[in-house]
């Protein structure tokens, strides 16, 4: 069963600038419309790692609510679509219900979905107990 974790009406240019400043990622496709246009992009592209951080927090909040004994051990992803400035998106999780939450072989999936419900990124997540 899929559970919706987070919904955004879109990240602003100011937020992209702020993430760029914090992370030191000064790739101009994230803040310079002319460069993005020159690269054939329809707008400023959101940093993949910014989205990663948002997805991580959404899962972490979900785990804390479900059981504070667990934390994220591994998170892996393959980006298949791009998220642009002001694009709405949402994050959903699908737990592997055939396994214990902290089973490292559990195939828990997290979806970063665009406004049309298409996956821009699918994550695999492994959880462990905080203090085993």
């Amino acid at each position: 069963m899929r559970v919706r974790l987070f919904e955004s009406s879109g990240l602003s240019r100011a937020e992209l600038m702020q993430y760029g400043w914090i992370s030191g990622d000064h790739n101009p496709i994230h803040f310079d419309e002319k460069v993005a246009d020159g690269r054939g992009l329809p707008g400023l592209i959101v940093h993949g790692m910014f989205l990663y951080c948002i997805v991580y927090k959404a899962i972490d909040d979900f785990l804390l609510e479900k059981s504070p004994d667990f934390r994220i051990k591994e998170l892996s992803s393959k980006f298949s679509g791009m998220t642009f400035v002001n694009d709405s998106f949402r994050v959903e999780v699908e737990l592997d219900e055939s396994k214990e939450l902290s089973d490292p072989s559990a195939r828990n999936k997290v979806f970063l979905l665009n406004k049309d419900g298409e996956a821009n990124c699918i994550f695999q997540a492994v959880f462990i107990r905080r203090n085993p």
């Binding site: 496709i29 020159g38 690269r39 993949g48 990663y52 934390r71 051990k73 591994e74 998170l75 892996s76």
Partner: peptide, 14 residues
């Protein structure tokens, strides 16, 4: 050049 880069996969082990 940074503007030619695209992230395609990423894995974290904490």
């Amino acid at each position: 050049d940074l503007d030619r880069l695209l992230h395609t996969t990423q894995t974290f082990d904490f």
